[in-house]
Design a protein around this nucleic acid. Structure first.
Length: 197
DNA sequence: AATATGCGCAACCGCTCCGTG
DNA sequence: ACACGGAGCGGTTGCGCATAT
């Protein structure tokens, strides 16, 4: 269906951002704040699509980004949250201060997936892989997930929209207080503390 | 030392959601 | 109530770097 493109593709840069572009974007947002992304590139003097600017800022330039290796706690938290939320990376990111949805998504696909498979756990369903279950070490996490499964509504896959963002039905998983109400990333609600086992 | 292969990160694309007129 | 436009999200791709052969 004919939807107007978000930008004039012919007049926009693509690919890796240059230092100068970064500086322009940061300077503009510092001066004016995150406003209308569609008009931002023009106002900031950037030959970029608004979407691209938003992504660059959120995933790379934001001052509150943590960057660097994920800790074991973050690992576990991501796995637990994924068990509840499915591929709702933005929601998961909301519980991990300083982390972005893109970063978590990449980390999941490159590290955690493999880690779970090595444990004999299906990364999508979080169920033991058939036949490999015996090989899976009896981790504490596994027990927690099993317990959670029996107490939470079984809405995996994240396809079930709306309900998983419904903070009225706050899921509770093995000591994780999953208040899923969205909070700006800059105001973390100390999720790691919530894990406190 | 050169080449092939694998891995990880950054960025893009298309779709959906949500607010507004 | 409906249509439109902007913002946000998730999936996928491309590129550069590291490691293996």
């Amino acid at each position: 269906m004919g939807r107007s493109p978000c930008c004039e593709k012919a007049h926009t840069n693509k690919g890796a951002w240059t230092k100068e572009e970064d500086q322009r974007l940061v300077a503009y947002i510092k001066a004016h704040g995150e406003g209308c992304w569609r008009s931002l590139p023009k106002a900031a003097g950037l030959l970029r699509c608004g979407k691209s600017c938003r992504l660059r800022w959120i995933n790379y330039l934001r001052p509150d980004l943590k960057r660097g290796n994920f800790t074991e706690e973050e690992d576990d938290l991501i796995i637990k949250l994924h068990q509840i939320l499915g591929n709702k990376w933005s929601l998961i990111a909301g519980r991990l201060p300083g982390r972005t949805d893109n970063e978590i998504k990449n980390y999941w696909n490159t590290h955690i997936k493999r880690k779970l498979l090595a444990r004999g756990i299906d990364p999508q369903t979080h169920q033991p892989l058939s036949g490999a279950a015996a090989n899976a070490p009896s981790s504490r996490l596994q027990d927690q997930l099993a317990a959670a499964r029996s107490s939470c509504s079984p809405q995996t896959s994240g396809a079930g929209h709306s309900s998983d963002e419904d903070s009225a039905s706050v899921p509770y998983l093995g000591g994780i207080d999953l208040n899923l109400s969205l909070s700006p990333p800059s105001q973390p609600s100390s999720p790691v503390a919530a894990v406190a086992n």
